[in-house]
Design a binder for these strands. Structure first.
Length: 218
DNA sequence: GCGACAG
DNA sequence: ATCTTGTCGC
C-alpha cells in the first residue's frame, strides 16, 4: 500500500494526479477538519491528529489521534508519504467525516501537482486545501500587507495557489487547493478559518493535539 | 553542474 | 519535523 522508495512514491503521485479535480465545491460547508502530524522514535513513526470544527463558528466538535510508521525519510515533494498513513488512520476513527480538510502543507502547489492536501483529498474523496507556512515551488508578487491581501502563486506559467496574508504585519501563508475546491475558494475558506493568528484555527488545534496532546486552545 | 527544497 | 533561552513588540 505504501511505497518504500522515492521512485515508487513518485510513480504513485504520477498515477493519482489525474484524479485531482480543481473546481469550486458546493457551499455551505458544515464542518472543517484540521489535520497535522508530529514524529517520534527519531522520525520513524508519525503521530497524527485530526480536529473537526463546526462552521462557521469554528467550535471543536470531534477529534482523533493515531500513529503509523513513516515508510520514507523526509524528501521535499514526498511529504505525504510520511504523514498520510497516520492521518488517514485518524480520519477513520471519526464517526462522521468532515466536509473539508485543511492540511499543513501544499495542495497542487507541488512539483507534480500532488502535495499532501491533494493526496488526502483524492484518497478520501473529501474536499481539501493545503495551507503551508513556507513556499515549496512557484513565484509571486508582493502581497498587500492587510488581512485578506492576496496574490496568485504561479509555477511554470500555471496558477497553482494563492499567497495569502491572514494578518497584517506577519508573513503570508501559501494556500493551494488539494481536491474539489478552486484556488479562490481555497483562499476564502482559509481566511474564514483564521481569526487572530497567522494560521487557521484548524491547523492550530491539530498541531497542538499532535504535539502536546491537548485541545484547549483559546 | 549549481541552487532550491512543504513538514 | 525536532533540539531549546532569552528577547523583542503589541
Amino acid at each position: 500500500m505504501w511505497p518504500t522508495t522515492a521512485e515508487a512514491a513518485i510513480a504513485i503521485q504520477q498515477e493519482l494526479r489525474s484524479q485531482v479535480i480543481i473546481a469550486p465545491t458546493q457551499t455551505p460547508l458544515r464542518s472543517v477538519a484540521g489535520v497535522d502530524a508530529g514524529f517520534e522514535d527519531d522520525g520513524r513513526v508519525a503521530r497524527a491528529a485530526v480536529v473537526v470544527l463546526r462552521l462557521p463558528d469554528l467550535t471543536p466538535i470531534a477529534y482523533a489521534v493515531a500513529r503509523q510508521p513513516a515508510p520514507l525519510p523526509y524528501i521535499p515533494g514526498l511529504l505525504s508519504f510520511r504523514e498520510a498513513p497516520a492521518i488517514l488512520a485518524a480520519l477513520e476513527q471519526l464517526a462522521t467525516p468532515p466536509d473539508l480538510l485543511i492540511c499543513d502543507g501544499q495542495g497542487i502547489a507541488h512539483p507534480r501537482r500532488f502535495g499532501i492536501a491533494s493526496h488526502l483529498g483524492v484518497v478520501t474523496g473529501i474536499s481539501s486545501i493545503g495551507c503551508a507556512k513556507t513556499l515549496l515551488i512557484g513565484e509571486h508578487d508582493a502581497v498587500p500587507d492587510v488581512r485578506g491581501g492576496r496574490v496568485l502563486l504561479v509555477d511554470r506559467g500555471e496558477p497553482v495557489g494563492m499567497v495569502l496574508r491572514t494578518r497584517s504585519g506577519t508573513k503570508p501563508v501559501f494556500v493551494s487547493p488539494g481536491h474539489l475546491v478552486s484556488i479562490e475558494q481555497a483562499a476564502d475558506l482559509v481566511l474564514a478559518c483564521t481569526t487572530r493568528y497567522r494560521l487557521p484555527e484548524t491547523t492550530r488545534y491539530a498541531h497542538n493535539l499532535a504535539s502536546h496532546g491537548k485541545l484547549p486552545l483559546k
